[in-house]
Design a protein around this nucleic acid. Structure first.
Lengths: 215, 215
DNA sequence: AACTATACGGAACATTGTTCCAGTTGTCAC
DNA sequence: GTGACAACTGGAACAATGTTCCGTATAGTT
């Protein structure tokens, strides 16, 4: 019998076929539109492309960030997996360097992504936590390995490093007057465990509000 | 009559007094609203606060970025001047560190500023060039001094460093899960002239599009 | 005081996010 | 197959905001 099993659940109707089809179509359309016009493309455009009404999108994805996450989920997973692979096949510093490139390539193909990630716009609020949650643990493994063998300073956490790498990666595609030299390499150089004779500069500042001391 | 002098210029009427007053009022209102609601606060709010119509704002500042620049001009000048002072009174690396703090303090009080600066939104397009133009030359002086005395690597340009510092400064005020440890210090550590025995990592990558090779 | 270039203000229009609901359609029970 | 009902749909409707336009008001000049 198809009755509720054991519990008093009434009758878990099957999800409607057209709903499934539409969800898929929306995902596909969003992927295409995001690639063409960036992650803040108009919802109507996505709806039109998917051949549905805007209401249909909002039902499956109440927040814009839900849609973004759904679209990028697979790719983010791949970037995270790459961190794990690189960590296995290369020395920590080298692994980080290669992974930063991988991350930059991901960011470069997602127009408006980095901006959205740190915009403060409530529509994008859940994004940082999601991406950080997916990426940081794998990167932390690399950092730990480096710290164990003494090549990477032990006081930097992946939760801080990854957002920084995303921000810096974003500059690469910018066209501002700069020479295009990438600061990511400089940041990674700064990750090296400090050499004893390395002059008077202190390590990264301890946590705390930056505006603490005026002047 | 007060004829045109020498040239055939007709009669350069004096700027109207109410126009001058309004320009001042708009600037004042924008400053207040930006501080409260960020640089992308509604134009209507600014207009209302200044006691003028939106049309009046658009006449003096055809683009939103014009208004932002006008409002921040004085402060940006102060930050730039600070770079010069610090460069005079401290060793280069220390000067950079102190100036980065100064910059971070500026950014922290300008809600939405960093986001706008790199958003790609056409309304903000002129911003990066303006701020870079104001700040980079002074920072370049410090970098040059450091390169001369051999404490700072010579291949990093202020046009690349300053945007990076702005981006990283922005994280400081973020509330994402991170520990709050500031990556600016790490980046600056990476600026140290490489020590001979410093392991195999190459310098910062040479210029070139990052997305050049797919996969 | 009359005249006119200048500037004003806000209505009007365009774009986009988001909500809501009357109507449609798939699923299930029979 | 058929009827009943819940799930789902599509797009109209509303709200917020950027931007333009122009009839009106007014400072400056004569």
């Amino acid at each position: 019998m198809q009755t509720d099993d054991a519990a008093g659940a009434p009758a878990p109707r099957r999800r409607r076929a057209d709903a499934v089809r539409n969800t898929e179509a929306v995902l596909e359309a969003a992927k295409a539109v995001f690639a063409e016009a960036g992650v803040d493309a108009p919802m109507r455009d996505i709806a039109a492309r998917a051949g549905v009404g805007v209401g249909t999108i909002y039902r499956s994805y109440p927040q814009r960030s839900d849609l973004i996450i759904a679209v990028f989920r697979r790719e983010v997973g791949a970037v995270a997996a790459e961190a794990e692979r690189l960590g296995r096949e290369h020395p920590p510093l080298e692994a980080l360097r290669l992974w930063a490139d991988r991350l930059a390539r991901f960011v470069a193909t997602k127009r408006g992504f980095s901006g959205a990630l740190h915009s403060g716009d409530p529509a994008y609020q859940p994004l940082p936590a999601y991406f950080l949650g997916a990426l940081a643990p794998r990167v932390q493994d690399i950092l730990d390995a480096g710290a164990r063998e003494g090549t990477i300073r032990a006081d930097v956490r992946a939760e801080d490093l990854v957002p920084a790498l995303i921000r810096l990666a974003n500059s690469r595609s910018d066209e501002h007057g700069g020479s295009g030299l990438d600061m990511t390499g400089v940041l990674l150089d700064g990750l090296r465990a400090a050499h004893p004779e390395a002059g008077g500069a202190d390590q990264a500042r301890p946590p705390g509000p930056v505006g603490a001391d005026p002047r």
